[in-house]
Amino acid sequence: MAPPTRLAQLSDQLSQQPPSRTTMTTTPQTLKDKVAIISGSSSGIGAAIARELSARGASVVINYPFPSLKPQADSVIASLPSPAIAVEADMSTASGPGQLVSATMAKWGRLDIVVNSVAVAVNKPLEEQTLDDWDALVNLNGRGTFLLTQASLAHLTRGEGRIVNICSLSARAPPPNQTIYAGTKGMVDSFTRCWAKELPPKYGCTVNAVSPGPTRTEGFAAAGEEQMKILQPIIDQTPVGPRMAQPEEIAWAVGFLCEERSRWINGVHLVASGGLFVD
């Protein structure tokens, strides 16, 4: 029998991951009474962030883009210890971000935390990337972040609001084949720098970014065998350990930035990559 490929090993390991530590009920309830929107949270890093914030006591809004993903979103909700709702809203459309905020306000009447987590990647040589790829990634990763943040501002609890953008190591240290994806994450990186100066005086919030390195998610597993051949040697050089991050390790960094005691942390680009990239 032929040995398993890297991609097959990754898929197998994904199916065997233990439950996130954030499902534990002993986590201090430091975000109790807070309401958090996490875009793109029916799977992957977004779902892990939802579990982390919920474990800290926040009521969370699970977001999914299409009806076919509702069972996935419901499964995430079933794993949460705090109140939650699932909202179907496509962040790649002009109306989806506003619908997500409206559903949140209709349910809880307040909004404290916005995590711009949703994103999609395309891994292709530059010559093969298309305008359809451009529209899909720019509309979701870039415009979706812009519109969700814009729609949220009037509702953020003044003096307590937290905006956390999920960027990517690809914004500052991209591998080959990620021209458009890296560009959109560079856009999110720049949004964070701009908003951290512009928004706190107006809305009493903080704006920060978390940049994951390679992370063991369903989306990463779908990168494809050729891209994994490029990425695996990079992953193997990670100083803390030759592995990918677990989603809950990224989620913890987000949770930290959402805490009340993080009120003086603003404009930070927190890289959670095990030291793979040091700025």
Rank of each mutant, 00 (worst) to 15 (best):
M91Q: 14
M91A: 12
M91L: 13
S92V: 05
A94H: 11
G98Y: 00
L100Y: 02
V101P: 01
S102A: 15
A103D: 06
T104N: 03
T104I: 06
K107I: 02
K107G: 04
W108G: 04
W108V: 05
G109P: 11
L111P: 00
S117R: 07
V118Y: 01
A119S: 14
A121D: 14
A121L: 12
V122H: 04
V122C: 01
N123I: 06
N123E: 12
N123L: 13
K124V: 06
P125H: 01
P125R: 08
P125E: 03
T130A: 08
L131A: 12
L131M: 15
D132V: 14
D132Q: 14
D133N: 06
W134Q: 00
D135K: 14
A136T: 15
V138D: 02
V138W: 10
L140K: 05
N141Q: 07
G142S: 14
G144H: 04
T145K: 03
F146M: 12
F146W: 15
L148C: 10
L148E: 00
T149W: 01
T149K: 04
S152F: 11
L153H: 08
L153M: 10
A154C: 04
L156H: 03
L156R: 03
L156G: 04
T157N: 09
G161T: 11
V164N: 05
V164Y: 09
N165S: 03
N165P: 05
C167Y: 05
S168R: 09
S168P: 05
S168N: 04
L169F: 01
L169V: 13
L169N: 10
L169I: 13
S170Y: 02
A171I: 10
P174M: 04
P175L: 14
P175C: 03
P176G: 01
Q178N: 12
I180K: 08
A182N: 06
G186F: 02
M187Y: 15
M187S: 11
M187P: 03
M187A: 13
V188R: 07
V188H: 04
R193P: 05
A196L: 03
A196K: 03
A196C: 14
L199H: 08
L199C: 03
P201N: 01
Y203R: 09
G204A: 05
G204F: 10
T206R: 15
A209R: 06
V210Y: 04
P212F: 09
P214R: 00
E218N: 11
G219R: 10
